[in-house]
């Protein structure tokens, strides 16, 4: 599976999409390391909170304040819930390495057990969305067609038709959703990380989130069919135009040069 995903991101595909952007896209995709899916053993809640507090004091408090009340460097964590922690830390966005338009996905620093402890601590600061059950984001249980409609109403304006990502203002961006663990997609919808608005269950019920995940699973994983051939990044007419200008016209001009060239003479002059 991982191999296939690497192949789908083969340089050839990227070259096709954005000849000039190899380095940028390469760097972007290199950071798309799938998260470790190990589940922590359930531990005593209070113990977890205690352990989480310790981790928090070391890794998070400098920005978010000693009690999660927030500071000029980081928002308050009261009421963000365990789901927000699981998403932010589980995708490597937190702890923040350097300031920028928004927190970037990075290699994960904590183990899943530590993340759970951190989440338990932050959840204890105020009521908020909890980490969903696996059944809530199982793609096979959702209706992809319904999810596609919901996706186009609520998500595609930022994330593109199939979740290839898109630009926001001033260097912010809606990240690509390919091969993101469905759990993080679910958590992102519930918590609304960074610029993203939240889609609470009151307006987008649980089963509809599942439908959206099912749609993404159908069109945007390493195994999703792309019947027509190379997907060209899924960016639409821009990459198609580039392809026509470079590969299409390039091949035809090469052929034209062959036709127009003189045949080699017997005697070299």
């Amino acid at each position: 599976m991982k191999k296939l995903s690497v192949r789908r991101r083969h340089p050839l595909a990227a070259l096709v999409v954005l000849l000039l952007a190899l380095a940028a896209t390469g760097g972007l995709y290199a950071t798309l390391a799938p998260a470790d899916e190990a589940q922590a053993e359930a531990s005593a809640q209070s113990l977890a909170i205690e352990e989480g507090k310790k981790l928090y004091d070391v890794g998070c408090s400098s920005c978010h304040g000693s009690g999660g009340q927030g500071s000029s460097d980081g928002p308050s964590l009261t009421g963000v819930g365990a789901a927000a922690v699981d998403f932010q830390v589980g995708t490597g966005r937190m702890p923040l390495q350097q300031p920028g338009p928004q927190a970037e996905e990075k290699p994960v620093v904590y183990t899943q057990a530590e993340i759970d402890q951190l989440a338990a601590y932050v959840a204890s600061l105020g009521p908020g969305p909890s980490v969903p059950n696996e059944s809530a984001y199982d793609p096979s249980a959702g209706d992809a067609a319904r999810g596609g409609e919901l996706f186009r109403t609520n998500c595609s304006q930022c994330h593109n038709f199939t979740g290839q990502g898109g630009a926001l203002t001033h260097g912010k961006e809606a990240p690509a959703l390919d091969n993101v663990d469905p759990r993080y997609i679910y958590e992102a919808m519930v918590t609304g990380p960074a610029s993203m608005p939240s889609f609470p269950n009151s307006t987008l019920p649980e089963e509809e989130k599942q439908d959206i995940i099912a749609w993404l699973h159908a069109v945007n994983t390493a195994d999703s069919p792309s019947p027509g051939g190379l997907g060209l990044g899924g960016f639409g007419p821009v990459s198609e135009g580039l392809f026509a200008w470079t590969f299409g016209m390039g091949a035809l001009i090469a052929v034209a040069v062959w036709i127009g060239a003189r045949t080699a003479k017997a005697r070299k002059s």
């Binding site: 186009r152 109403t153 595609s156 304006q157 593109n160 290839q164 898109g166 007419p237 821009v238 580039l242």
Partner: peptide, 12 residues
């Protein structure tokens, strides 16, 4: 009432 980012016409 729906839209996607990367909404472009064909290159020409």
């Amino acid at each position: 009432d729906q839209v996607s980012t990367n909404a472009q016409p064909d290159w020409y």
